[in-house]
Amino acid sequence: MLFEEIDRVKQDFDQDIKEADSDKKLELIRIKYLSRKGLVTQLFGQLKSVPKADKPSVGKKLNSLRQEITAAFNNLKLKYGGDDKVSSAAIDLTLPGSKYKTGSKHLLIQTLDEIKNIFKGMGFSVYEGPELESDFYNFEALNFPPDHPARDMQDTFFVSDDFVLRTHTTPVQIRIMEKLKPPVRGIMPGRVYRNEAISARSFCMFHQVDGIYVDTDVTFAELKGTLVSFAKQFYGTDLKYRFRPSYFPFTEPSAEMDITCYICKGKGCRVCKKTGWLEILGCGMVDPNVFKHVDYDSEKYTGYAFGMGIERIAMLKYGIDDIRMFFENDHRFLKQF
């Protein structure tokens, strides 16, 4: 008996809710069914008189009735509810929002982070070292003998006979190898200094990331594979590259890595000096003389090393044509990145 009543209430409700197309009509439905004296409440009141045996099933049916009605009602309430409480005319939504200041990392640091993440993913640790460095770490241990023309490759700021502002982050390689036994695999980001005339293309300081991997079976082929992987992750997978012989006192053989100029796609332009190639880093196999300074047995261990300048990479990537922009800290520049 109550069963049938429940079904009837449900049918009535289904009919009513179909016609409900405003908040007002919804409110009438609420009163009719869901209020304290509403039909659903009344039905629950009748539960008392149901025989004990039927109670669970009737109760269950009642509960589901209430759930269905409430759900259907709430659905429409979201749609029509409040439509005459807040009219969209009362608030001018076109007014500008409040201003929030956002912080930002320097563009060079953002670029460095990207590089760091790629190498960390390939199993590299991250090491740091001082900017004011001894001649031993900056040059001698890296196989730049005193009075050797190789020293001319890096215009150096001296602070005394024995100390310089480091000209590259490569000395951190020595510091790490002094501390650790192979395998050693790490990158060394940091700031370096060169006594070069300040212009759009060069500044008295810039940032580098050096890297080194020393173990029993490290080869030039692995160096190539690792750096190609880096370049593809950083510059895109369709990249073309080449390794070209070069010279650094601390590596032998030494190479420079070029990638196709992504401004002209290799056709030759002003940026790549019409060669179609852009040099992105220097690298090579660690020179046995370097191992000598850190007491590594160069018969047993081999290693590769590489280094790249962050400014150059960021300039190419973001189309910045003056390196000084990085250190002028023009707020209009900072806000862009």
Binding site: Y100, G103, K105, E131, C204, F327, L334
Partner: peptide, 17 residues
Amino acid sequence: RNCAVMMGLKEILNNPL
């Protein structure tokens, strides 16, 4: 650095010389 950025500050790099 992340903390400074979270606090709404913009990073600068000055010439130490």
